[in-house]
Design a binder for these strands. Structure first.
Lengths: 208, 208, 208, 208
DNA sequence: CATGAATGAGTGTTCATTCAT
DNA sequence: AATGAATGAACACTCATTCAT
C-alpha cells in the first residue's frame, strides 16, 4: 500500500510534469512562430508560459534545446503520417497522393509549428541542420525511392533524381510557407490544394 | 593646374572610398554567408574588414542597412539579367530558357551573396520582407506573366497560376540552396543543370 | 508551519530586495549629486553600488528612470512637509513660516538629493520637465494661492502674482543651491536662515 | 606697396576668419539653446554652420571651449551694460533701476544666448564654474556693494547681505528663465516687467 | 586655410544561464 | 520541484578629436 501511494504520487507528478512541459512547448510555438527564434527571449517565453526562470531550465537544457524539441515534434507528426508506398501494390500513385494529402493536413492543423520549421534553413546551426536532415532526409528518401522505383517500372520518365527531389521539396515548402505566412488565409479546400500541388509535380514526371 | 590638382586629389579620394566600401561589403558577404545575419556581430565585421568601429558607421548606417544593401546588390544582378519575353516573338520558350540560364550564372558566380539572400524568409523583419518582395515580386511577375500569356497562346495548359508560380520559385530556390550550402560542390555543367531544372518545370506545363 | 516558512523566506527576500534597491539609490545620489546625470555612467553607478550590470536593470528600467525616481523621492519629501495654510485660520503667516522652516529641514537633511533636483532646469528632457512641473507646480500653486488669498484679505499688497511667484521660487532655489554647492558649509542656524529668507520675501509683500 | 598688398590680403583674411568664427558661434547659439550642450554634437554643429569637421577645430580648441566662449560673450554683453552706481550721486535708486532695465534688454535681445547661460549651474564643470563666477561674481559685487553702501546711507535696512544677494540673483534668473523657456512669449512691455521685478526686490529692502 | 576619413574608448542596454533559497 | 535574484559577456551604436592630404 505504501508503494501504491508512492506510485500514485509519482504518477500524478509525472503527469504534472508532462502538462508543464506541454505548457512551455505551447508558449514556445506561439512565440517562435510569430517573432522567430532570435527575437524570442527566455523572458518572453516564461511570461507566456506562466512559469519562473528557473523552472524553464528544469524542463529544457537551453533555449536551443527547446527549439530543437519543437522541430522534432513537427518532424514526428509529418513522419507519422507518411506511409511507405509499394510501387508493385495497387494504385501507387493514389497512395502517394494520400501521403501528400495527409501532410497538407498536418501542416494546416499545425500552422504555427509548421511556420517555425519551414522558416529554418541549413548552414547556420549544426543542431538545426541535424533536425532538418532528419525531416527532409526522410522525405527525400521517400521521394527518391518513389522516383527510382517508378522509373524502373516505367511510370516515371528518367530524370536527374537528386535535383528533382530537391525541386519537389522546395516547391512544396514554398507553397506551404506562402499560405502560412505571406498570404496567411486558411486554405479553404485542402483537396483542391493538394490536387493542384500534385498535378504540377506529376504531370511533368509521368511519362506520356 | 590648381583645379587639376584638386580634381586629382578628390578623384583619388573617391576611389579610395569606393575601395573601402567594397572591402566592407566583401567582409560582410563572407561573414553573413557563413554565419548568417544574427550570428555576425559588428565586431566580427570590422575585424574581418580590417577597419575600426567608427569607420564602419562612416560607410553604413547600421548593420541592418549593410545587410539590406547586400540583398539589393544581389537582386539587382538577378533583375539585370532577366529579359522580358514576348510570347508572340520568335521562340519564346528558348528566351525563357536563356533567362533561367543567365540566372544560374548569376547565382553560381555570386555563391556567397546568393546564400545570404536565399536563406532569408518572410515574416521576421520588415526591412528584409521589403527586399524579398522586390526580388521575388519581380520574379513572380515574370513567371505569372509568362504563364498567363502562354496559356492564352495555348502553349501552357491551364493551371492555378499563383500556386504554380510559388511552387516554381520554391523549386528553383531550393535547388540553388542545395547546391550552394547542403552539397556545396561547384556545379560542373551549368547547361545540363539548367536543362534539368527547366525540363522538370516545363514538361508539366507545356500542353500535350 | 510550511506557509510560515515560506512567509519567512519571502519576507527576508523582500527585505533584501529593498536593501539592494536602497544601495543603488544611495550610490546614484552620491554620483549624480557630485558629477551630474550626464557625467555619471552606468559603469560608475554599478561600481559604486557594488553590483553587476545586469542587476542594475533588475531594479531600474533605465538610467533615466532611476534619475526620475530620485527626483520623485525628493519631491515627495518636500510635498509631504508642506501644509495647506488657511488664511482665515489663526496666524497664517506663522503657518507659512513653518512650512518654509520645514522645507529648509528637508533640503539640508537631504543635501545631495536636493543638489540633484535644484540643478535641473526645464527644456532639456521631457521626463525631467514633467518631474519639475510636479514639484515646482505644487510649490507655485501654494505660493500663488497664498498670494491671492492674502491679497483679498488685505495682508498682501497687490502684485504681479505670476512674476512674484517665479521670483520667490528662484530666490529660494538659489539660496539653497548656494549653500549646498557654491559655499557648501552646513548652515549652522536653520532658524536664522529661514528668518532671513522669510524676511526678505515678506517685507516687500506685507502691506505697510 | 608690397607690404600694403600683404596687409590687404591679411586684412581680408582676418575679416574672413572673424566671419567664419561668427558663423560657428551663431550655429552654436541656436543649437545649444534648443538642445543643450550634451545633446548637441560636433556633427550637428558643423552641419548647422556649414563647415567641415576639421575647420571647426581650426577655430575652437574643443566643444567645451566654444561653449565657454559663448558664456563669455553673454557675460561681456551684460557687464558692458551695467554702470557703477555712486550712492552719493544723484538718484542712485534710479541708476540701479536703469541698470536692471538695460540687463532686461540684453537678455531679451539675446534670448538664445541667455537661455544657454541661465541653464548652467555650478558644480559640474570647473571651466563652467569659472565663467559663472565671472558673471555672477560681478553681479554679486554690484549688488552687495549697493546693499552695504545703501545700508550705511540709511536707504537700505540692515539685512543678511550675502543671503539677500543670492536671493536677488536667483529671483532675477528664474524670472528670466521662465520667460525664455517655460512660457517663452516675448515680453511685451519691458518697462513694466522691469518695474515689477524692481518693486518686488526693493519694497522689501528700502527702509520704512 | 580647409577638408573629411579614420579612430577607439565609451555609451546604455540585453539576455541566456546559474544557483542559493 | 520551484523560484527569481544575480551575473557579466556581448550587443549595436556614438562621438569628440586627430591628421594626412
Amino acid at each position: 500500500m505504501n508503494t501504491r501511494e508512492i506510485d500514485g504520487r509519482s504518477l500524478r507528478a509525472v503527469e504534472k510534469r508532462r502538462a508543464r512541459r506541454s505548457d512551455i512547448l505551447g508558449a514556445a510555438i506561439r512565440l517562435f512562430s510569430s517573432r522567430g527564434f532570435y527575437a524570442t527571449s527566455i523572458s518572453d517565453l516564461i511570461k507566456e508560459a506562466g512559469i519562473s526562470r528557473g523552472t524553464f531550465y528544469l524542463y529544457f537544457d537551453s533555449k536551443e534545446a527547446l527549439f530543437l524539441d519543437l522541430m522534432d515534434v513537427f518532424a514526428k507528426r509529418i513522419m507519422d503520417v507518411v506511409e511507405i508506398v509499394d510501387p508493385a501494390g495497387p494504385d501507387p500513385v493514389q497512395k502517394i497522393y494520400q501521403n501528400v494529402r495527409r501532410i497538407v493536413d498536418v501542416v494546416f492543423n499545425n500552422r504555427e509549428l509548421a511556420v517555425i520549421v519551414f522558416r529554418e534553413t541549413y548552414g547556420l546551426d549544426s543542431g538545426i541542420d541535424q533536425k532538418l536532415n532528419k525531416l527532409y532526409g526522410f522525405l527525400r528518401e521517400m521521394v527518391e525511392g518513389a522516383l527510382s522505383k517508378g522509373a524502373s517500372w516505367g511510370i516515371i520518365r528518367p530524370v536527374n533524381e537528386q535535383l528533382v527531389t530537391t525541386a519537389l521539396i522546395g516547391a512544396i515548402k514554398e507553397v506551404f510557407y506562402h499560405h502560412l505566412v505571406v498570404e496567411p488565409h486558411p486554405v479553404p479546400d485542402r483537396d483542391a490544394f493538394t490536387t493542384s500541388l500534385f498535378e504540377f509535380s506529376t504531370r511533368g514526371l509521368l511519362s506520356v
